[in-house]
Design a protein around this nucleic acid. Structure first.
Lengths: 219, 219
DNA sequence: ATATATTTTTAGTCTTGTCTAAAAATATAT
DNA sequence: ATATATTTTTAGACAAGACTAAAAATATAT
């Protein structure tokens, strides 16, 4: 049995391990989970004992195949629940995270499969993040940061990097959501801000913002 | 903050307190929760400290107004989730309990209200048990045990007393579910079994069975 | 290469919720 | 009414998960 706390650690390691494919450091996990490094060390040992993680003292952790599947399963549940919340229960995309953090730990194979079917097998959550399938596989989506797009190009918002409430509310205020068409009008060399056209309204966004919006080329 | 474990104790006291309106005994709670009496004593003290229960040593417990509301809220969530599982996610009535036991602890006011609306404000769960409203009020339903109905009378199944998987599967096998019409053909003095007509099929049921089916007079 | 800084681990403590075994209170039976 | 049985509580222990403070290992800087 994987405990709730173990699932949270697995998820953190899973997310941190995605980018660099090396071992994840104790401190990185502690920061991500807002806990202390010593607590992380304790838990890592438990995960290693259960064959969910590979651990060498002072060298960081990585997930075993089994651990990766367990982590992906939690992420799958989290994202499917988010879809339910937004599509059926009138949650906005900035309200779902906290509740999904709880729902992701519900243990029922049937529940999650039925939920998947009920939602019509969605491939992405409300923030544009891919939903792992039962085997933990995720569909890699073609996406680039809005900050990478050149002047005069048009693109479509397909996700966000930062899913914090503040950022999502900012996007709501400027009517940017998944599927929104964005045209880059001009870029400012000085502070790397850019002016973009959203629904025929021109707005100026900072580099921080453009660095946290994923887009794909307009088709 | 009411913890998960506290919620489970509140629920147990709530259910046990429904019938006799006196204080609930430590042992009764221990049996209901499949735990030890000493654990119950420990927890009761915590509930009393939090003003959720009234407790006098050796005299049993009852819930305070606050405790009763907290307990009713857990029951409300449990039963609403059961409705979702059966009506939207293809669960049968014998499969819902275990999952609802987990889901009932999810903390989100908005979630439960939206769920209520999404399900069209149901008044009963899949076993015919009433769903408390936000203030903890439940609609008393007119219902009697099938064992109380006389020969030649007709009635309609409106609930079950025993919600165990085994019993529910038994009912499924004999095509008895909520809303099913039942006519009492004859009663056996000897063992108090009865022969009933369900969808034009005659079946014989034991006193144990007729004592666990709630019905209302056919209208 | 050695000193300093940072990261990670260990050792020991705390809280929550559980348990066993024994003691105390209450209930029951003759 | 007293002895016996049952119920309830207390006392002390344990596991999970987290924390602090100190020690050990690794990384960095001169």
């Amino acid at each position: 049995m994987v405990t709730l706390s173990e699932e949270n650690y697995l998820k953190a390691i899973y997310h941190l391990g995605k980018q660099g494919s090396v071992a994840v450091s104790t401190n990185a996990i502690a920061e991500q989970m807002e806990t202390k490094a010593s607590s992380v060390t304790d838990m890592i040992k438990k995960l290693a004992d259960k064959n969910l993680a590979n651990y060498i003292k002072y060298q960081g952790v990585s997930l075993t195949k089994e651990g990766r599947l367990a982590a992906a399963s939690v992420v799958r549940k989290h994202r499917l629940w988010e879809v339910l919340l937004v599509e059926k229960l009138n949650f906005s995309w900035d309200e779902v995270h906290e509740v999904a953090e709880q729902l992701e730990h519900i243990k029922s194979e049937k529940l999650i499969n039925e939920l998947d079917a009920f939602l019509n097998y969605p491939e992405e959550d409300p923030h544009g993040d891919p939903i792992p399938d039962k085997d933990g596989n995720i569909k890699k989506v073609e996406k680039i940061l809005l900050s990478q797009v050149s002047e005069n190009q048009s693109c479509i918002c397909v996700g966000v990097k930062d899913s914090s409430t503040d950022f999502l509310k900012y996007l709501d205020k400027h009517h940017i959501s998944l599927g929104t068409s964005i045209k880059i009008i001009s870029k400012e060399k000085f502070d790397e801000s850019m002016t973009i056209d959203v629904n025929n309204t021109l707005i100026n966004i900072s580099k921080t913002v453009s660095n946290n919006i994923y887009v794909k080329k307009a088709s």
